[in-house]
Computed example of a mutant assay.
Amino acid sequence: MQLTLNLPNPLAARQALFLSTDGQPFTTSRAVAERFGKKHKNVLRAIENLLADIPDPSFNRLNFEPVEYLDAKGEPRPEYRLTHDGFAFLAMRFTGAEAIAWQIAFLQAFNALEAELHARTARFAHALDQVRPMLRPVVEATEAGYSRGAIASPLGKSPASITYHRRAARRLGLLAA
């Protein structure tokens, strides 16, 4: 027998995703509780049980960030920020047809948002290549260990120009300081 899923509106899952200050998508334990029709305290308990079962503390730190939010009374309450992997790991524990539908909707929303972020990054990289066409070959050659002179000659530039581009690349975070 095949199970027919009544998938939630993809926008509902998308509205439960946010971007961190470093541009990484995440959701919260409250958003998961709301979308899965669970009490937040039960989702918190599920996360804490899950964290106790995971033998890798670095996985926990990277994917389940404990934070606080202000409730309706203005009092701080605990919640977790979940990465794509953190959400997937937690949602695997939820059962039932509705839970499966939300799992699919959330995973599709995460994947779509991550694809948008990658496409945006690629557009920025392309724009930077247009504005500063020497930057990419200088960075790549520097990372390969070439000297200023070895980089400058095939590009038809002076070693001083390579120094200039290396400084620009460092300011942009493309090369280590």
Score class of each variant (00 low, 15 high):
173 G>A: 06
127 A>M: 04
13 A>R: 08
153 S>C: 01
146 Y>T: 00
114 E>R: 11
25 P>Y: 12
44 L>D: 07
88 A>I: 15
42 N>T: 15
63 N>L: 04
99 A>L: 08
47 I>P: 07
95 T>I: 08
28 T>G: 10
86 G>E: 09
132 R>G: 00
11 L>Q: 15
31 A>P: 02
37 G>V: 07
58 S>M: 06
148 R>A: 09
132 R>L: 11
136 R>G: 01
3 L>R: 14
113 L>Q: 12
44 L>H: 08
116 E>W: 01
124 F>H: 14
113 L>A: 04
168 A>C: 03
83 T>A: 04
107 L>T: 15
50 L>Q: 14
98 E>H: 08
128 L>N: 08
175 L>E: 01
79 E>D: 06
172 L>K: 02
60 N>W: 04
75 E>D: 15
48 E>Q: 13
101 A>N: 10
54 I>F: 05
85 D>K: 14
94 F>I: 12
137 P>S: 09
141 A>Q: 11
13 A>N: 11
140 E>M: 03
114 E>F: 02
119 A>C: 00
152 A>E: 04
146 Y>I: 02
11 L>Y: 06
147 S>T: 13
134 M>P: 01
30 R>H: 10
173 G>W: 03
81 R>F: 02
12 A>P: 00
23 G>A: 10
175 L>P: 01
121 T>D: 14
107 L>A: 13
24 Q>P: 01
48 E>T: 13
25 P>K: 11
72 A>L: 07
